[in-house]
């Protein structure tokens, strides 16, 4: 990982092209997969990944090196994904009214989402889990995705979300509890 290298960060701050190409190569997976897990649309996830890297390029001079580079990138990534989701929700409510007054609109295709990285035998269960995750609060959902899908520790997620490890534990506990309740109803 390039995280610990202060030289690398200095190069990024200077706008070094090779360093940026290296950054994209190294972090594209975490950015793209986190976004994909939150917004559940491949095409939009690609566009958002581009936006995240552009944002990193714009604001890398503000990175003070207090946290790991990956922590900072995760923070930008999930903030962008939530922003996108809020816009999408607003659009969806407009579409709902359009539908009410009889103007057709295209479906956003979230219902049939399947993450390409999920094993074949888990696909059906994962679709159920994604649908259930939509009913959680933003914080619970983000914490759950970062821990279960990204494999981060409670401490790392705490740093990303500006929360203590204890509150992340609480978030995950409540998320699991809610998910069980939702899934019980669905499986019945």
């Amino acid at each position: 990982m390039l995280d610990s290298s202060t030289e690398f960060i200095e190069l990024l701050k200077k706008g070094d092209r090779i360093a940026f190409a290296q950054l994209v190569e190294e972090y594209q997976h975490i950015v793209y997969n986190t976004i994909l897990n939150i917004c559940k649309q491949q095409h939009d996830a690609e566009d958002l990944t581009q936006e995240v890297f552009m944002q990193i390029f714009k604001s890398v001079h503000q990175f003070r090196g207090e946290a790991k580079l990956s922590t900072w990138i995760y923070k930008i990534t999930y903030t962008k994904a939530l922003e996108w989701e809020r816009k999408k929700k607003a659009k969806r409510s407009i579409n709902y009214f359009k539908n009410l007054i009889g103007i057709d609109h295209k479906s956003d295709g979230i219902a049939d989402f399947n993450h390409p990285g999920i094993e074949l035998q888990n696909k059906e269960n994962a679709t159920l889990l994604y649908t259930a995750l939509d009913q959680l609060s933003d914080n619970q959902r983000i914490a759950f995705i970062l821990i279960k899908a990204e494999g981060l520790t409670y401490q790392e997620v705490g740093k990303i979300m500006n929360k203590t490890t204890k509150s992340i534990e609480g978030l995950i506990h409540r998320a699991n509890h809610h998910l069980r309740q939702i899934l019980e109803k669905r499986i019945d």
């Binding site: 793209y32 997969n33 899934l183």
Partner: peptide, 16 residues
């Protein structure tokens, strides 16, 4: 339910 909750396990990363 536990199987559904664990369905993200062993998830590989999607490639750009």
């Amino acid at each position: 339910i536990e199987t559904v909750l664990d369905s993200f396990n062993n998830m590989s990363r999607a490639e750009l």
